Simulated assay, not measured.
Amino acid sequence: MTPRLVIFDVDGTLVDSQGDIVASMTAAFDAVELTLPLRAELLAIVGLSLDQAMHRLAPETPVATRDRLVAAYKEEYQRLRKAGGAESSPLYPGIGAVVESLSTQDHTLLGIATGKSRRGLDALLDNHGWTGLFQTVQVADDHPSKPHPSMLMTALAETGVETARAVMIGDTTYDMQMAHSAGIPFIGVSWGYHAPAALTGARAMVTDAADLPAAIDQVIGN
């Protein structure tokens, strides 16, 4: 069978990390004595690289202050991750079974495209027993922030899969726009951090993780 590539976003798609994200943002803004944005504003930037996220949340602050925000966020997030383990960013209901089932298909390659750092992603994958499960892993350390298509173009190049046989699965408009720019179809999930109604470019919308395999087959073939 012709190989196909299923690429997942992480935060808001595979794992529910909003508790740690909000707590880390709170610690970061406290560290530089700035007013914390509203929770909805914090969740709206999930998926962006941290430097871009801080620029959106605190656009009037000097670059040095935003650098301090990034550093303080990373420090707190790492502390919470070490303390909480897998419970720090739990898998969404049913998503673990879907990913593991897809991984057993000889013609299906799995990928990740995330705004996380490599260190953060490696720790998360290890916590959930997923180390080595994904054939291509693209992180913020190596690419421009979403929605730039660099992550997806690199994933295609690494796996040799054609765009028509690849799909991006995510919860945000950044994921959707990135997929569109790369010429890859997009499947939206309803359980993440952007309103499903905003994912207007999705080829399919899924409200239950158990429905993802059928949606993938429908969009790129089985």
Rank of each mutant, 00 (worst) to 15 (best):
L212W: 00
S17R: 12
L156N: 08
Y174L: 13
D142F: 10
I7Q: 02
E41A: 15
G221F: 08
A40T: 14
L14K: 01
L38T: 15
I169N: 00
T172I: 10
G192Y: 00
S117E: 10
L125I: 05
H180Q: 13
F8V: 03
A71N: 04
Y193G: 03
D16S: 09
N222S: 11
S24C: 08
T136W: 00
D30E: 13
M205L: 15
Q78I: 10
M151H: 15
G120R: 00
R79H: 13
T159E: 01
G96F: 01
G160S: 04
T2D: 13
T131M: 06
S89E: 11
G85L: 08
E76C: 12
R56I: 08
T13Q: 00
Y77V: 10
P185K: 02
L38S: 15
A166V: 07
G96C: 03
V137C: 09
L152V: 09
V70N: 01
H180S: 15
V6E: 01
G183M: 09
R56H: 12
G84E: 11
I21G: 04
V161I: 12
P196W: 10
E75V: 11
E100F: 00
Q52K: 13
G160K: 05
G115S: 08
L48G: 01
D126H: 10
D67L: 11
M151L: 12
L133G: 03
I169W: 01
A215T: 09
S88V: 07
G111W: 03
H148L: 09
T61S: 09
T61P: 00
D16H: 12
H194K: 06
V219E: 04
G111K: 04
M178H: 04
V6D: 00
A86S: 14
R81T: 14
A113V: 08
D20V: 08
D126E: 13
L38M: 14
L34M: 14
T163M: 04
G132R: 06
M1K: 14
Y77Q: 12
L57P: 02
G132D: 05
G120H: 11
I21M: 11
K82S: 10
M205P: 04
G160E: 06
D30N: 12
R68P: 01
P93K: 06
S145T: 13
G170M: 05
V139D: 02
A202L: 05
S103Y: 00
A215I: 06
N127W: 07
A44H: 13
R79I: 07
V63D: 14
